[in-house]
Design a protein around this nucleic acid. Structure first.
Lengths: 341, 341
DNA sequence: CTGAAAGCGCTTACAG
DNA sequence: CTGAAAGCGCTTACAG
């Protein structure tokens, strides 16, 4: 149809020559800049079309200092981030980000968290979205040092972070347990200093005070994955046998806890309710399926990208940054059916 | 610690100035090219380190004509590719590709199949991996026209395609059904001309001839998603009520078929066995869970990237292209428990 | 062993 | 309204 296959890709010089104008004029005509005679502009456009000309992103980027690329980065401990669970979480976000980015004329680069500890130096990006940064996050440091702007998902509260609504999520989970007849819900959280951990603990302690039950919290090391959850649940159920429900935000732990509960003679969903946070593969394929929370990741990723673009371009829609993401909603499954079910 | 935040990123000119040599020498020293005095080389290295110098991928790419980026592309009908099922398939492959690519010094760009029909012109890539191209694939055409080399996953058999072992997969599924006591297995496939469809049909027909059962095949339009599977199963079960098993490579269809079967009074896994191909979210969260095939996508994506790099770099390990991917293996679940279970 | 120069494909002041 | 020139940050013949 058009240019012969294998032929060198047309450059701005080709268009200029064919159209009988300078490269400057081609640039202006195609980018709608400056004053260009209407006829000249049309001629340039026609030639560009005929030659199937597309400006080189590379060259343009070199000149403008922009790569038109974004990435989603995470420094989560790989044991947690690797398994199907967290990978699903990461992947869901990445797909959402990529979609929004493409729509806005940016390309989205994939940096699997398992592949490399700190890929920042290897990536040619204008900005990044950083997932759940730790207090002294190495990736955040690298980004700062390179002067690459970033927006955080679930980072320190600010206009540079998109919230995952941990408080609400934790509240929804605790309330649900009590509603389903639990009298002594326990909590299993990770040892790392992530916001989600703190929020879960606080909300849980508040609820304990308010509803008058003794709090029972166990901590597990994220890097030990499922086994850590197993051990934490085992200990908690031994020390506090009256525990009739477990709130376990980290789904990897939840899987281990279900195993521990079952081995301890509990029937999950009847005399031991279990719920987790991320509604991913793990929650859904657990036996029985786990009640979890719909975090609205599509919306979260869209907002994160838009906020990042506001920073990069200076002039995106400033209104969208106001629109808070939708509240987390429960996905109720068999694991919290309750004793009466 | 190192350079002040916000400071302009060091360029080769900075290093050259600080080291008291020319940019040429810096380039040679850092890239290990040409003859450079050992002391000079060391000095350059030290300065580069001190300034935290990293060559600009952009500039290097402009000069060398390479972007050091790859992408996974797909032109599957979006109704099929969008749902959680196919997106999971795509995503699994993308993650695998990204990992291998990063390891080899390439960046992996994400182009969600739902975002844009043909993103080729928007992507600055050296090569691509094309997923299940149709006979006259528009993306393949665009890639050819732009002179971008690509390797195919499940494309026309050649050294440019990584096989998904459709024949073996289909065989494994048919054999399993017969083993589990099915006497009249039926087949539901898509109408599109993909290799997987043809392979399934052929293997199925062969098995019918060999084992002496009447073939019962229904076709469904991929673009209609789950409903198409529902209708196809309904028709098939009405026309051929003796059917006691359904082989449904496309998991979206399988979900619909399970619904149709249940509505027709069948007990899935007992008097109607059901199995699908891709072992994704759909198969696992179906009720009951669906027997599926472990396609070894990690290995497939690794091979695809390596084969692509062989083409791009001319000189990757030529041996790895020989290593055929591992055979597909069955993941047996409740949906094919069988009447005696 | 080292460097001056050209050039990758663009955009952007600056002149005219 | 149009173009010559400089320059983004590199690499690569080519001289010396």
């Amino acid at each position: 149809m058009s240019s012969p296959r294998g032929s060198r890709r047309a450059t701005i010089a080709d268009v200029a020559r064919e159209a009988g104008v300078s490269r400057t004029t081609v640039s202006h005509a195609l980018n709608g800049l400056g004053k260009v005679n209407e006829q000249t502009r049309d001629r340039v456009r026609t030639v560009a079309e005929r030659l199937n000309y597309r400006p080189s992103v590379r060259a343009r980027g070199l000149r403008s200092g922009r790569s038109q690329a974004l990435a989603l980065l995470s420094s989560m401990p790989s044991a947690v981030s690797a398994g199907p669970s967290q990978l699903g979480f990461f992947t869901e976000l990445a797909m959402g980000c990529a979609r929004t980015a493409l729509l806005k004329g940016y390309v989205f680069v994939l940096a699997p968290p398992e592949a490399e500890a700190n890929p920042v130096d290897r990536l040619d990006i204008d900005g990044a979205i950083l997932l759940e940064p730790a207090a002294d996050d190495p990736i955040a440091a690298a980004l700062n040092q390179r002067g690459i702007p970033f927006v955080t998902i679930d980072g320190p509260a600010s206009d540079r972070s998109v919230d995952l609504h941990h408080e609400q999520t934790a509240e929804v989970l605790v309330e649900h347990m009590l509603e389903r007849g639990a009298a002594r819900p326990g909590l299993i959280i990770g040892t790392s200093e992530r916001r989600s951990q703190r929020a879960a603990r606080e909300v849980y302690l508040d609820a304990a005070a308010k509803h008058g039950f003794d709090p029972a919290i166990a901590e597990a090391d994220e890097t030990d994955g499922e086994d850590a959850g197993y051990r934490a649940a085992q200990t908690l159920l031994t020390d506090r046998p009256e525990t009739d429900a477990l709130i376990i935000p980290i789904d990897t732990f939840a899987t281990g806890a279900v195993r521990a509960g079952t081995e301890a003679g509990r029937v999950i969903g009847r005399d031991l309710l279990v719920a987790t946070r991320y509604d991913g593969l793990r929650a859904r394929t657990s036996v029985p399926p786990l009640t979890a929370v719909d975090l609205g990741l599509d919306e979260v990723s869209r907002q994160a990208v838009e906020r990042l673009l506001t920073i990069l371009d200076g002039t995106d829609e400033p209104d969208s940054s106001e629109s808070e993401s939708t509240a987390p909603s429960l996905v109720i499954r068999e694991s919290t059916a309750g004793p009466t079910a």
